[in-house]
């Protein structure tokens, strides 16, 4: 499967989810559901790699994205004074997407996965709350927390379908993508989750914190590149796409550092 075909399948999955999450009022006030594109790619990774992929896999994958999107939507509720109509509907949009996720799995039915994803959602919520708690953690510990937030739901999917071999790629790949996005949002002042802000509080200046995270991100990218080159699990076309994505991230990091 070539890169163009992978992109097409990602788009198709996204379209299917957008149809299932469609609600006229929510669309008008809160916009399209905040779906992470990289999550779609990593969910489809086994399919790209030639693993058996039935309609059951496809619909279940939709449900994983739905619940992650529900949680991401709630990150868009402002910490204080969420009183506008848009903000009120943002609360309900997350709950609506969450209900649609459950309805999708109940319809299949796949009750076992509801249980597994419930554990993941509880853990993700606990980890997101950790950003507000008065606890001291070092950079590495915060990154571990962030990794759970980013990839726990999709890990449940892979474990459920006995596709565990893909988990290390998903964990690392999604971590670097999201880390890079959050870093960029922090420098632009558009952060949603408190992740980088919390880390920044333990450094003398924001610049110092950003520099430390950039070093960590660079190290994570290098580790991921090594993992991709070394593995025999993934086919060459996927390796090329992933390495290409890492090149783009590295270039973006250089530009941020220089700019």
């Amino acid at each position: 499967m070539n890169a163009a075909k992978m992109k097409q399948l990602v788009t198709e999955l996204k379209d299917e989810i957008n149809i299932k999450l469609h609600h006229r009022t929510l669309l008008e006030y809160t916009g399209q559901p905040p779906i992470w594109e990289d999550q779609l790619f990593y969910l489809l990774l086994p399919k790209f790699n030639g693993e058996q992929w039935t309609q059951n896999h496809q619909v279940t994958a939709q449900s994983v994205v739905m619940i992650q999107t529900a949680l991401t939507t709630h990150d868009l509720v402002q910490e204080f004074e969420a009183t506008s109509k848009q903000q009120q509907l943002m609360v309900l949009a997350g709950d609506y997407y969450s209900g649609r996720y459950y309805a999708t799995l109940a319809e299949l039915p796949n009750i076992q996965l509801v249980s597994e994803l419930s554990d993941a959602v509880a853990e993700i919520s606990e980890n997101k709350t950790a950003f507000y708690e008065p606890v001291q953690k070092d950079l590495q510990q915060w990154i571990e927390i962030f990794e759970v937030i980013v990839s726990k739901a999709i890990e449940s999917f892979m474990t459920h379908f006995e596709l565990k071999a893909y988990i290390p790629f998903i964990q690392k790949g999604m971590l670097v993508n999201r880390l890079s996005t959050e870093l960029q949002r922090f420098t632009e002042g558009t952060s949603t989750v408190r992740f980088v802000n919390v880390i920044a509080e333990s450094f003398a200046t924001h610049e110092e914190a950003v520099a430390k995270i950039q070093i960590e991100l660079h190290a994570q990218i290098e580790q991921f590149q090594k993992l991709i080159r070394k593995t025999e699990l993934l086919n060459p076309a996927i390796k090329d796409v992933l390495l290409g994505q890492m090149d783009v991230l590295t270039a973006a990091q250089h530009m941020t550092r220089e700019g």
Partner: peptide, 29 residues
């Protein structure tokens, strides 16, 4: 507000986890 959102999401997750002890798909629907 944000902690309240995560608190609600946590409770919803726990609710569904309990419910999965019931195997009847109709109940889940």
């Amino acid at each position: 507000n944000r902690v309240a959102m995560y608190n609600g999401d946590f409770i919803f997750a726990k609710a569904l986890d309990y419910m999965t002890r019931i195997e009847n798909p109709k109940a889940h629907q």
